[in-house]
């Protein structure tokens, strides 16, 4: 059995997208302590805002990406103010169900505005160059670079800034953090901004790699959840490691299983991860 390096390359691209997305989800979970089903639809919203700016208004892709990321950061804060803020004291399970309602709303709003079919960004179509037998596209390279930049930025945020340190503290123990004088409600605002922006970026990457569809985020939720849980829910570096692990495993798995079933790899990783290492790869899950 020879492993085609093409699969590894594809895996790195998919892994970058999953890592970025899982990072946003796990940050939100760390502070707010619930699994946000609507997260996939946040991703789709980011992708569609960028689509509107890029393909419909005809502005360059860079502007569109900024609009999508910024728009979704604002959108996440808006959803929090309208919905989640009123459920702050509810149990994680109630919040999870509330987020189903939010997901329904957002996904169908997207369908109502942009229609149910798939769309593409307005990017020049070129033949994909290849290097050492690996075919790659400009979009794929940009996805990997953007994800590395984002991961570095989040690392600096969490390690070097006061907000980030407070976030990590609140993720560990929210009550104790409050006792130490941190305004946790303010922190919630920051985490929605960061989480929403990351979701937007993840969605745009996904749209660049494949297609922009209303359910694009929702259908990617499963590998994202798998990465998040595999890495230990609430643990940012675990989410990144889990994302790359699942992305690469999923793409490489086509060597041994039919490619229609590569998605099953995420499910298997999810179940095995939960049974064997419920605290995540690094044992730093926040619960």
């Amino acid at each position: 059995m020879v492993l085609d390096p093409q699969f590894v390359w594809n895996g790195i691209v998919v892994g970058s997208i999953i890592s970025v997305s899982a990072l946003g989800l796990t940050l939100i979970f760390g502070i707010l302590n619930f699994i946000n089903i609507a997260y996939g639809d946040y991703m789709a919203t980011g992708a569609y805002i960028a689509f509107a700016v890029n393909a419909q208004m005809g502005l360059p892709l860079v502007v569109a990406i900024a609009a999508g990321v910024g728009g979704m950061a604002a959108g996440a804060v808006l959803v929090d103010k309208v919905v989640f803020e009123h459920f702050r004291t509810s149990s994680p399970v109630t919040l999870l169900i509330v987020s189903i309602g939010v997901a329904f709303f957002i996904r169908n709003l997207i369908r109502a505005v942009w229609g149910p079919s798939g769309n593409f960004y307005d990017v020049p179509i070129e033949a994909n160059p290849s290097l050492f037998g690996v075919r790659y596209s400009v979009e794929q390279v940009s996805i990997i670079i953007a994800s590395l930049l984002l991961l570095a930025a989040v690392y600096v945020l969490l390690r070097r800034t006061r907000i980030g340190i407070a976030m990590r503290a609140a993720s560990d123990d929210r009550t104790l953090t409050r006792i130490r004088g941190v305004d946790t409600e303010r922190l919630v605002l920051y985490v929605w901004i960061a989480g929403g922006a990351i979701a937007g970026l993840g969605g745009i990457m996904l749209g660049l790699d494949a297609q922009i569809r209303p359910n694009m985020g929702f259908t990617t939720l499963i590998p994202i959840f798998a990465a998040t849980i595999l890495g230990g829910i609430g643990d940012p570096k675990g989410a990144v490691a889990g994302g790359f692990a699942i992305g690469i495993l999923q793409e490489v798995s086509v060597v041994v299983i039919p490619s229609e079933y590569k998605f099953a790899v995420a499910l298997a990783a999810l179940i095995i991860g939960l049974l064997l290492r419920p605290d995540g790869l690094f044992g730093e899950a926040t619960r």
């Binding site: 919905v83 009123h86 459920f87 509810s90 109630t94 169900i97 509330v98 189903i100 309602g101 939010v102 997901a103 329904f104 709303f105 957002i106 996904r107 169908n108 709003l109 369908r111 109502a112």
Partner: peptide
Amino acid sequence: PFADQLPYIRLMFVGVVLVVVLY
């Protein structure tokens, strides 16, 4: 107006119902 969007608006409404009931 918005007749084409009705199926989606319907499901948006279901989402709203879920959140409102829970609240």
